[in-house]
């Protein structure tokens, strides 16, 4: 597995974490729990953003592995 595909996999995981966290934000009743889930969702979103950029860079470097 190339680094490119590994980073893509991580990106997918982070996105799924972000999605689950946002559904937990909606579902939890308690205000502090809601806040904690929301804060961590924002963090996950930032990580996903950075990884997305890195995936773009890697795709430019290894054009043969260009995916979606």
């Amino acid at each position: 597995m190339t680094i490119g595909s590994q980073v893509k996999q991580s990106l997918a995981s982070v996105k799924s974490i972000e999605a689950i966290l946002s559904s937990l934000t909606v579902q939890s009743e308690d205000k502090t729990a809601k806040k904690a889930f929301d804060e961590s969702r924002v963090l996950a979103a930032r990580v996903a953003e950075d990884l997305q950029k890195r995936v773009g860079e890697l795709e430019r470097e290894e054009a043969q592995y260009k995916g979606f």
Partner: peptide
């Protein structure tokens, strides 16, 4: 650890710390 690009190294390190922070926030829940 594995990347050779300094900028990427810094970016990964920063995001690893972010994930760690995230873990601290949500793990009690």
């Amino acid at each position: 650890l594995s990347t050779t690009s300094a900028a990427a190294k810094e970016m990964y390190g920063r995001n690893a710390r972010k994930m760690d922070e995230l873990l601290q926030i949500v793990s009690p829940y």
